[in-house]
Design a protein around this nucleic acid. Structure first.
Lengths: 149, 149
DNA sequence: ACCGATATTGACGTGAACGTAAAGGTGAGG
DNA sequence: CCTCACCTTTACGTTCACGTCAATATCGGT
């Protein structure tokens, strides 16, 4: 089955579609979501989201023991899933998120981050080439079949 | 089951730079490769290639017990690895290769193949969008870091 | 004949990314 | 108060894609 269209807006999420029925109450601006809200919205299971938390990829707040996801958390999850969609491992994703995170950057760390980012970009370009080639081949194959009808 | 080696050329292999030092000699046109030749050329282990054979993805000839890969087999392996690079599972790859293989196609089978191919193409376009977005973000991130120097 | 390099077939191990119970807490509603 | 629906943790199971021995040929060279 196809993978859903993943909305990403890590940097401040402006919503276009539905507010996804905020679980409940509170301040209008501080919208929160339950784990199943996000699970449904992104087409994954709650287990998956909890697993990501165990891996240190998200850290929602808690009301008692229950998880409360902010819009920032939601955007972060979207980013994670998009990373997954392009083939990143969860370790990759954590590393990238860690790089994004802190305005905190001492010089050597910044240079390391830059190097790693460039490597990844280069790898992604390779991947894109493979992707384009595969698409081209499959489309050609489709045309070939269509011709046989 | 047919005994004949029904080799699928996958559209005549796109050759890399070097012939990769054919294991040995013989007829000029019927060039063959050892498993380690291919392993080195494609940067995988022999184990991986044997595993793919176990999964029914390649069927090289044998000289005694030793595997002999033709250029067709080599191209097929290249296809497999490219499929892997875009995130296909081995089951996906097998299915696609099976679809490619036979000029043998009765009508309903062709239509099924067409449908599946179109689904995949569509998924690949989604994946490409995710890829482009990720590349764009990472490049932006790089520029941001560069600015901080 | 011997040696070292490379080949083979099992068979078991492994890391990643979850799935799947099992057992229990929590709040709203009838 | 009791049920229902949804949340929680703990923990073991599973699939995929190989890795890693181990034991055993085979082949080329000295």
């Amino acid at each position: 089955m196809g993978e859903g269209a993943v909305q990403t807006n890590v940097e401040a999420g402006l919503e276009a579609a539905e507010p996804a029925r905020p679980s409940a109450v509170g301040s209008e601006t501080a919208q929160t979501f339950s784990i199943t809200d996000l699970a449904r919205e992104f087409g994954v299971t709650s287990r998956t989201i909890r697993f990501y938390e165990g891996e240190g990829l998200i850290l929602p707040e808690r009301r008692g023991t229950t998880r409360l996801y902010s819009r920032g958390d939601r955007a972060r999850l979207a980013w994670i899933l998009r990373g997954r969609a392009v083939g990143f491992s969860l370790a990759d994703i954590r590393e990238l998120l860690d790089m994004y995170a802190p305005g905190q950057g001492r010089r050597p760390q910044l240079e390391a981050a830059l190097a790693k980012s460039r490597e990844r970009v280069s790898a992604l370009y390779d991947q894109r080439a493979a992707l384009d080639a595969t698409i081209a081949e499959l489309e050609h194959f489709c045309r070939t079949i269509e011709a046989q009808l």
